[in-house]
């Protein structure tokens, strides 16, 4: 493929250090109090001492329930949020202390795909402009080469390249998510943070997008930090899994092991709660869930 796709310029790490190394990451959001909300009375410990790694070409699935800190973790990795504490090393470089200029170069190499394919695309831009915007921002190529890049990117995600002159409202949810993915691929990143990329989609469309993400990973050697609350979706995508609960990773390991032999009580309860599309297992599942009642007691 072209110069942006050949992977030669992509960031690499020296030696054996994984592509992404996150250590003791914390993100606390202040809770304001006092008469004019001018004092910090406490903190939301959204991410509370989290460590993990992602190797090149690998997928780490980050699962957990609403509010457990998945999105905040992803944003801190990308430096879209400034971590309160801890280290984020990407391609051998520490990001938390990096200057803005240096960070700009690194940004090319880490991208994000958002949950909501409706909100994340500018309705007034053509699909071609949306997909090639990252190239423009980073001043790569000229008008003509950007146009042909856009066409190629649309083809990569399974579209007719003629679609470049259309607008997002002409597309369905799944198609818009493809546009978001094409855009994330524009700068030939080595890591993509996928934040609930299929939660807004119907099953039949969800399968199309998950297959596409797998294909792209195989073709371009992408690493994914795959964030989702759906345990089945995460399993199908991930080599390794980290389970989050209240800002902490409670269990981490190879996907196979975590799903078949979870050791943490919360992970066990979470897995027992997933409804399984097999009515013959109904009784057994219900009995299994009763065992975990205490772990899951709702806050009173």
């Amino acid at each position: 493929m072209s110069e942006q796709m050949d992977g030669a310029s992509r960031a690499s790490t020296n030696g054996n250090e994984p592509l992404l190394v996150v250590k003791n990451l914390k993100k606390y959001f202040p809770i304001k109090g006092g008469a004019i909300l001018d004092r910090t009375v406490d903190y939301v410990r959204a991410v509370d001492d989290v460590s993990f790694t992602v190797r090149a070409g690998e997928t780490l699935g980050l699962v957990g329930e609403s509010g457990s800190g998945k999105t905040t973790t992803g944003y801190c990795v990308l430096q879209l949020l400034k971590p309160t504490e801890g280290s984020v090393r990407f391609a051998g470089k520490e990001l938390t202390t990096m200057s803005r200029g240096d960070m700009r170069a690194v940004r090319r190499d880490m991208q994000i795909v958002f949950q909501d394919p409706y909100a994340s695309l500018n309705p007034r831009m053509t699909v071609g402009d949306i997909v090639s915007e990252p190239l423009l921002v980073h001043k790569i190529g000229n008008r003509k080469s950007r146009r042909s890049s856009a066409e190629r990117l649309l083809e990569v995600v399974g579209f007719n390249p003629d679609f470049i002159n259309r607008y997002p409202h002409e597309f369905s949810g799944g198609q818009r998510q493809r546009i978001g993915i094409a855009r994330a691929l524009a700068l030939n990143p080595s890591l993509i943070v996928c934040d609930e990329p299929v939660s807004a989609l119907d099953i039949s469309i969800q399968a199309q997008i998950l297959n596409l993400l797998k294909d792209l990973q195989n073709e371009f050697g992408l690493a994914y930090l795959f964030v989702a609350h759906d345990l089945a979706v995460v399993r199908t995508m991930s080599d390794r899994i980290a389970v989050m609960n209240s800002g902490k990773i409670v269990e981490e390991g190879p996907a196979e092991r975590v799903y078949t032999n979870p050791t943490d009580p919360y992970t066990q309860a979470l897995l027992a709660a997933v409804p399984i599309p097999n009515p013959r297992r109904m009784q057994e599942r219900r009995a299994e869930r009763r065992k975990h009642k205490d772990v899951l007691a709702e806050p009173v």
Binding site: I203, A207, V233, R235, A255, E256, I276
Partner: peptide, 13 residues
């Protein structure tokens, strides 16, 4: 049914 991701089974990844 075949489009559903599974939590149990082999060769899922």
């Amino acid at each position: 049914l075949e489009a559903l991701p599974q939590v149990e089974g082999e060769g899922i990844r």
